[in-house]
Amino acid sequence: MGLTSEIIVQALKLKGLRVTPQRYAVYANLLSRCDHPTVEQLVVDLNKNFPVSSQATVYSSLKALQEAGLIREVLLEEGVSRYDANVQPHHHFRCRQCGHIEDIDWAAFPPLALNCLRPGLQPERYEVTVHGLCDPCQL
């Protein structure tokens, strides 16, 4: 078991999760990528090396990982859930032409004045999504 495998197993155990092959595979896959995949993309990718991952199994693994705070769901387009193992506060850029998604450092934007919201609203968190064209799509 390599260092990366040990870290993944320790992270799962530290959060009180049972280390199943499916949870391990889903979490390891998300840690290895930065494209914020959908469930469908995860299923295809996982079944290349682990051909027993059903969509239901991936969903239940994602739910457990999300509830444990190891991953987060990212909603960058209507009706599409994407998943990210980077749980630190950050923003996103999404290319309107090819769909490329990229993390933007939290400090890239000044903090929002959440105290300017109308009384009765209690903000908990926010993130900015920038829509535009990525480098290749500008050509």
Rank of each mutant, 00 (worst) to 15 (best):
R18E: 15
A25G: 06
V74P: 02
P89K: 12
L114N: 11
P119V: 09
V19Q: 10
Y24W: 07
L14C: 03
K13A: 13
P123F: 05
Q66F: 04
G79Y: 06
T129P: 00
L31R: 13
V128I: 15
C116L: 14
Q88A: 14
V43C: 03
H100P: 00
D84N: 07
Y83F: 15
P123E: 00
W106D: 09
R18C: 09
Y24T: 01
D84E: 02
G16Q: 10
H92I: 04
R18P: 02
Y24N: 02
A85Q: 07
R33E: 09
C95P: 08
A108F: 12
R18A: 15
V43P: 00
N47A: 08
Q97P: 01
V74D: 03
C34H: 07
E102D: 12
F109T: 03
L70H: 00
P119Y: 01
R94F: 01
C134A: 05
E73C: 13
A56Y: 06
Q10N: 15
A107Y: 05
L46K: 09
Q66R: 14
R82D: 01
L117K: 10
D35Q: 06
P51L: 10
V9D: 08
M1T: 13
L14N: 15
L3N: 08
S53L: 07
Y27Q: 04
G2S: 15
L112T: 07
E6A: 14
G69Y: 10
T57N: 00
G2H: 10
Y27A: 03
E6N: 03
I7S: 13
S54L: 01
T129N: 09
Y27I: 02
S61N: 02
W106Q: 14
G132E: 07
N49W: 08
L112P: 00
V39T: 15
T129C: 08
E73Y: 03
Q97W: 06
L46W: 01
L17P: 00
S61I: 02
A11C: 10
S53M: 12
Q10V: 04
T20Q: 03
I8L: 13
P21V: 07
I104G: 04
V80Y: 01
D35H: 11
N29A: 14
Y59E: 09
K63G: 00
L30W: 04
F109G: 05
P123V: 01
Q10Y: 13
I101Y: 04
V44F: 11
C98D: 06
A108V: 06
R33V: 14
C134V: 06
V74W: 04
C98V: 07
P51W: 10
A11G: 01
R118Q: 14
R72M: 08
L12H: 03
R23M: 02
S5P: 01
T129M: 08
A113Y: 01
H92R: 14
L62S: 02
P111R: 14
R82S: 05
L76T: 05
K15I: 05
G120T: 07
N115Y: 09
Q55A: 12
L30P: 02
